[in-house]
């Protein structure tokens, strides 16, 4: 049986840091074991139910899976894929990290942007990619998301964005920090035009992404059980000097604290998005 059952992550962020490895069962079909209920479910079955365990636990999904889940089939047009990170500060080891991330995620950066339809409503879209350096935000990620908001501004489109991120990418230093300002300014301009922005916060959404565009939407949705916060758990624990309460930084707690509009399961997500989009006639104030 799989030894992976016994490898407990040190914290939720770490648990989210890599894909749950499929476990080879006797039946030969790959299975995933739920960290909540410990039940193993064949991957094919999970895929047919948006990677949600029968107990309700939401497994990590990559950006392409999310696109298939949320966007009307055949309507997604990827944009800005030619914008990629390099190593602006000549940070040691960073080119190797980028290479590993590219190989592991089969994406060239930590966000996929574009346009597409959701329930027939045209949208500008971004999907952050957890398999790429934990969705960390460097200049390329910031630039792609900024252009997504600019494109939406020009075309009078709503933006629907899925966040998952460990925060700013420290290998690009201050330039990563500046992405928070750049994207925020683009969000503001889009908002001032009366256009809708819906953010869907998925596990984990932390650091500089939480302190910028994840928390700047008109409507903020979150997936059940997602870790949502600013500082890392260990830092908060050190600062506070005691054990953190149950449910700390969990979407359900953050909703109670008043920072999320709704927690929406994946089975309900597309319906919810379509309803919200339908209530915001395209173009908003500008029509």
């Amino acid at each position: 049986m799989a030894l992976l059952h016994f490898l407990k992550p040190a914290n939720a962020l770490e648990a989210g840091g890599r894909d749950h490895l499929p476990v080879q069962s006797d039946a030969m079909e790959p299975e995933l074991t739920c960290p909540e209920c410990r039940r193993s479910t064949p991957v094919s079955r999970l895929q047919s139910r948006y990677m949600v365990c029968p107990c309700g636990y939401h497994f990590r999904m990559n950006a392409r899976q999310r696109i298939r889940m949320a966007v009307d089939a055949g309507t997604f047009r990827e944009a800005f894929a030619d914008i990629v990170g390099n190593n602006p500060l000549a940070f040691p080891g960073y080119p190797e990290k980028l290479e590993t991330a590219r190989a592991a995620s089969r994406e060239n950066e930590a966000v996929i942007c574009g346009t597409g339809k959701i329930g027939g409503h045209p949208c500008a879209l971004f999907f952050m990619e957890p398999g790429f350096m934990m969705g960390s935000m460097g200049t390329a990620v910031g630039e792609r998301i900024t252009r997504t908001f600019e494109l939406a501004y020009e075309k009078g489109l709503p933006v629907v964005g899925f966040t998952v991120s460990g925060g700013a990418r420290m290998q690009e230093g201050l330039l990563s920090l500046m992405q928070m300002a750049k994207v925020s300014a683009a969000v503001r301009r889009h908002a001032d035009a009366g256009l809708l922005y819906i953010a869907v916060l998925t596990d984990p959404t932390t650091g500089g992404v939480t302190a910028s565009f994840a928390m700047e939407a008109d409507i903020t949705l979150a997936e059940p059980g997602a870790t949502i916060g600013f500082a890392g758990k260990r830092i908060v624990e050190q600062t506070t000097g005691k054990r953190l309460p149950k449910g700390f930084q969990k979407a359900e707690t953050v909703e109670e604290e008043g920072f999320i509009d709704r927690i929406v399961s994946r089975q309900q997500l597309k319906t919810t998005l379509v309803m919200l989009l339908a209530m915001h006639p395209a173009g908003g104030e500008r029509t």
Binding site: M180, A185, M215, G229, A231, V236, T240, L244, P245
Partner: peptide, 19 residues
């Protein structure tokens, strides 16, 4: 980065100042 900072939405507070 204390417990109350997270509970009171430190990330959201910074984000709102940025916009």
């Amino acid at each position: 980065c204390g417990l109350a900072d997270e509970q009171h939405g430190i990330g959201q507070a910074i984000a709102e100042n940025l916009t």
